[in-house]
Design a protein around this nucleic acid. Sequence first.
DNA 1: TATTATTATGATAATGAATTTCATAATCAT
DNA 2: ATGATTATGAAATTCATTATCATAATAATA
Lengths: 149, 149
Amino acid sequence: MKRLLERIDREILAAGGKRSRSRAVVIEGFFRARDHVTIDELTRSVRESAPGIGAVTVYRTLKLLERLGYAKELDFGEGARRYESNLSPHHDHLVCRRCGTVIEFEDREIENLQVLVTRRHGFHPTAHRLEIYGFCRKCASGDSPERFR
Amino acid sequence: MKRLLERIDREILAAGGKRSRSRAVVIEGFFRARDHVTIDELTRSVRESAPGIGAVTVYRTLKLLERLGYAKELDFGEGARRYESNLSPHHDHLVCRRCGTVIEFEDREIENLQVLVTRRHGFHPTAHRLEIYGFCRKCASGDSPERFR
DNA sequence: TATTATTATGATAATGAATTTCATAATCAT
DNA sequence: ATGATTATGAAATTCATTATCATAATAATA
């Protein structure tokens, strides 16, 4: 973790940025936080140790991390973006509509088929998003079927 | 088209709704419009023939069509939702980052693999979204490579 | 180390899509 | 026609995100 933060610091400097206290706090908070955080969630958690941090700084810092390739924007259609760290290899998401749990999965075969699809259409892919919505094991095993809506 | 509009009218009535002029205009406009329209786009186009229509009515009418199963909400990360008619069978989208063209595709094999993935995680899928972003054939064949950003 | 130049911060305002409110109008059932 | 209900549309509201701007912090220079 220390090495990571130092590396990011160096990249920020190299890009003409400065290392500020607030930014460092947000960055460390982001990597410590659970994955798929909301700006709001991260702001709250970061403010517990550093109450002065403005939400705007959190927005800006995550945009910065995204530019540097350390964070990825997610959108599960909730109205607010989420961010995940981009350290682990590419994966897609199963999103539970009831409890909000997010399960990550990776399927090489699906990825390959996607490439074939784009090829058939002369399309040059640069990114994709695949999310499967539904109910996780726990939520699906509830007794009352009407919980599904 | 006429049959479709009549059928929708009947369903609205059956659900306790009323058939209003504005709503009829919006619904017909929606099915005549090109697919993947924005609320704003549809509002403009509808207002050409019926200038009085309020944007709110367009919002409400599309929500209604979605509830009835005739429209699907899309989100290509542009900040504004898009809607497509839900008459054709399920499909996913290739979205060109340059010209905005949307190519629809359907791949049974990908769908099957998705089911297998969810099964592995004890997850009960109810919906999914798969979008591949990149450049369509025309935009990719441009001479200047720096158009890719 | 002191100075200067640049970047970052954070409070507030602005933006923009989507929703709510509410008085009025249209539509349906009697 | 009448009454009851639903729909409309303008304006206000909400909420996430971005822009503004004066101040503060940081880096580079002397």
